[in-house]
């Protein structure tokens, strides 16, 4: 069965690109436009991996991770943070909150995102 990836990201273009790329690689893709929607989908869809943006409306990426930590069912889902700023402070905080990996949008190509996803869930 195809592995399921949930993209939580408010930038429409990014979602489209990632969705397309991941689908091509054979993943099943779910999307959410903010943290609130993302947490809902997580509970419903039980994804194998979450790609998570940090700065989003309604609920940001850090809050999402904090809530995941408190939830037994969500705690073990691997998270790859997609950060826009790439500030070391942010990345360290993401790590602390249990993110498996991170990438800075301007420094990565979509292909490298796929590699990072593959590293986590094959």
């Amino acid at each position: 069965m195809a592995k399921k990836v949930l993209i939580i990201e408010d930038e429409e273009v990014m979602i489209n690109l990632l969705e397309r790329k991941l689908s091509q690689e054979g993943y099943k893709v779910e999307t959410a436009r903010d943290g609130e929607e993302g947490l809902g989908k997580m509970k419903k869809e039980k994804p194998d991996l979450v790609l998570l943006d940090i700065i989003m409306p309604r609920k940001g990426g850090f809050e999402v991770m904090e809530e995941m930590q408190k939830d037994k069912e969500l705690r073990d889902i691997p998270v790859i943070v997609i950060s826009n700023s790439g500030q070391p402070v942010e990345l360290d905080k993401a790590k602390e909150l249990g993110a498996q990996d991170w990438l800075i949008k301007t420094e990565f190509d979509p292909q490298e995102v796929i590699e990072k996803v593959k590293n986590q869930i094959g």
């Binding site: 930038e11 273009v13 990014m14 690109l17 826009n84 700023s85 949008k105 301007t106 190509d109 979509p110």
Partner: peptide, 11 residues
């Protein structure tokens, strides 16, 4: 500026 630039880069 980084956000749209990332989108352009990825596209």
């Amino acid at each position: 500026l980084r956000t749209p630039l990332s989108a352009i880069k990825w596209t």
